[in-house]
Design a protein around this nucleic acid. Structure first.
Lengths: 209, 209
DNA sequence: AAAAGTTTGTCAACAAATTAACAATTTATA
DNA sequence: TATAAATTGTTAATTTGTTGACAAACTTTT
């Protein structure tokens, strides 16, 4: 058992989830892989192949029930449970991420915001106080922190990540532009805005040739 | 000619560029694909294969000259020229992106920040005034705007993107969580933070099984 | 100056991912 | 209720991407 699912498939799941959510909002009850493929600009075959990694959610001659499939993918992604999140680095990006998780993302709850700058100590960002980094050990001990978003300069990212892991944080959502992939016992998701912007730049440059 | 380079390769280029930049900062003069592969945790074969899509930058028996290769990849990515950027949506994320591009990314210059909320009109974000969206046509006419970062609610994303394209913007860096891939004559780079967080969630959930 | 050691660029082999095809099954229609 | 149409799950074929291998070319050592 425990067939290994490729990251290529995992990367597509949130997109399916998003489209199914929209269909749900639009009151669509059922959809075939063919119809969905047209909306999403992917092949129907890929949709069926992807979904079948996790089980047979459809029915021949009928298609997929939108509400059911949406919920099932939600389960697979783990967004039907709540994950507590703290943000390390209360700069612009940190505050933006904190606000984003708070207002937009069900399944995630933002419970703490930390920084090293003493001038920010106690300052409220919406209804969360900015705390100093030395409060981290106690805070994590007293709260069930699952995910830490790292929105701080790359110089401090690695050491902070190691500290977080040693304190019991299971997952890091890394916005610092440095790779954090050789840390054991933790799940890392890198968001390299820098890389993304360069990819855009490449595609512009290519087009102008 | 004009061999099509796969997106898999393009996605790796910024990472090479980043590592080469660090080597450069550390004063390293030359590096072999083998040494680089160990640092980056990829195969040497992949590095050589990737680079050779664009030309023979190395030399047998010697390896790659760090400064030269860094510069060449910079050229390929188009980050050795300056691209003007405007940000549409002056919320937290918009301000964070504006600040990020301004202070961190050479090759990109942030020249405008727009919003629809009249209360924000004229407010300064660092040294940039927030402008109203109806100033866009004139602004774009008078400035060489290449990239627009979209940091606004998804409801307005598509229509705003279409408007931007009709005004002559070539590229969109899209942070709204909606796909903007069926717009012609424009290069789109989607940054779906939402998808990224769900991938993280999946990997946590998977690990707990 | 010759020999030994490195390391690239590239071709070939292999692996992974995507797409196509279709039998089995269900739904819809007559 | 029988027939036609639709659509999945799954296997097979194809395409794409990655890794291995090695001759050719360069660098370093003796």
């Amino acid at each position: 058992m425990d067939k290994q699912i490729s990251q290529a498939v995992i990367r597509r799941l949130p997109r399916y989830y998003r489209y199914l959510g929209e269909l749900l909002d639009d009151g669509v009850e059922r959809i075939s892989s063919n119809d969905l493929s047209k909306r999403m600009h992917v092949t129907a075959s890929q949709i069926r192949q992807d979904l079948n990694n996790f089980g047979g959610f459809g029915q021949q001659g009928y298609g997929y029930n939108v509400a059911y499939l949406h919920d099932e993918i939600g389960n697979i992604l783990g967004v039907n449970e709540t994950h507590n999140v703290i943000v390390i680095g209360a700069g612009n990006l940190g505050q933006a991420i904190a606000g984003y998780v708070k207002f937009e993302r069900v399944g995630f709850k933002i419970i703490g915001l930390f920084d090293t700058n003493p001038e920010l100590d106690g300052k409220m960002v919406r209804d969360l106080p900015i705390r100093m980094l030395d409060e981290l050990p106690d805070f994590i001990k007293n709260n069930d922190v699952e995910i830490a978003a790292l929105t701080l300069p790359k110089a401090n990212a690695k050491s902070t990540a190691l500290k977080l892991v040693s304190l019991g944080v299971h997952a890091i959502w890394n916005f610092a532009h440095v790779d954090l992939d050789d840390i054991p016992d933790v799940v890392i998701e890198n968001v390299h805005l820098s890389d993304s912007l360069m990819q855009l730049s490449y595609n512009i440059t290519k087009q102008n040739k």
